[in-house]
Amino acid sequence: MQYDPIKRSLGKVFNRHPFLRKIFYRLLDWLLLRSWHIRKELRKLKTQGLLQPVILDAGSGFGQYTYRMSRLFPQSNIVAADIKPEQIADCNQFFQQLGKADQVSFQYADLTQYTSPETYDLVLSIDVMEHIEEDTKVFENFYQSMKKGGVLLISTPSDQGGSDAHDHDHESDGVHGFIDEHVRDGYNIGDIEMKLKNAGFSRVEARYSYGTPGKISWRLSMKYPILMLGASKLFFVLLPFYYLLVFPFCALLNYLDVSNSHTTGTGLIVKAYK
């Protein structure tokens, strides 16, 4: 199914007022397991001395990670890049309302062509690379755009199942190709490490996310609600009650996934250093 129409529908609800937008970001922070992993990595980078970074949010989407980084690194300067003009305009308006226009700028950028030589201390790429066929070119552009000592932080599906992108395991629910926008099923952990090293990165650290607890949480918190919303917009009325029931369980599962290492998993968290 197509994920973007569901995201647009949710965006229309929460974009009516900055207060609702902040609530939306907070909900995403708690519901999305990838957000738990990224928060952990960003806090770790801050404790390691990343205090006033120049940041590229490469594929900024709704802007939730840009918002979090603007708060975690209040002295930072952030360029948030995306290819969807409506989201860029919407996010610029929101951050202007917050009084953060001097700190944060959203702009159009095709990541296969975008470079800004030796500019960024941190490049963030969250669930972006699985949408781009020319990934090696993007990795090269990231490398060229980073300062010496900079870090690239990536979240992307692995080849151990991804986000059910091409449901090869034929689950009993019969869903095939849950996310149609992906151009690959997911990265082999060795393959993405090799591609990043070939792009020039001196050190690459990759680990699995979405282990057993994370996979259960993802189905409860994201997959099944999205499938129901895709079947009928009436589920919007029931959605708050559904999450009241499942959220405590999902939060516990997310905590377990972030707190433990996994020998396999359907997601990858990758850090690459220049």
Rank of each mutant, 00 (worst) to 15 (best):
D4S: 08
R8Y: 06
R16P: 02
H17E: 04
I23D: 00
Y25N: 07
L27D: 00
L28F: 00
L33P: 01
K44W: 02
L45D: 07
L72N: 10
Q75M: 14
S76G: 11
N77I: 07
V79L: 15
V79H: 14
I88P: 00
Q93N: 14
Q93W: 04
Q96G: 12
Q97C: 05
D102W: 02
Q103L: 12
F106E: 11
Y120R: 00
Y120S: 04
D121K: 10
E134V: 04
Q144L: 07
G150S: 06
I154G: 03
I154L: 11
P157H: 04
S158L: 09
E171L: 13
G177S: 10
F178S: 03
D180P: 00
E181I: 04
E181Q: 13
R184C: 01
D185R: 08
I192R: 09
M194G: 00
K195W: 05
K197T: 10
V204Q: 09
E205R: 13
G214M: 02
L220T: 02
K223W: 01
P225G: 04
I226S: 13
L229F: 06
G230T: 12
S232E: 11
Y243P: 00
L244N: 00
V246S: 05
V246M: 03
P248N: 05
F249V: 15
D257S: 03
T264N: 12
G265C: 12
G267W: 10
A272V: 11
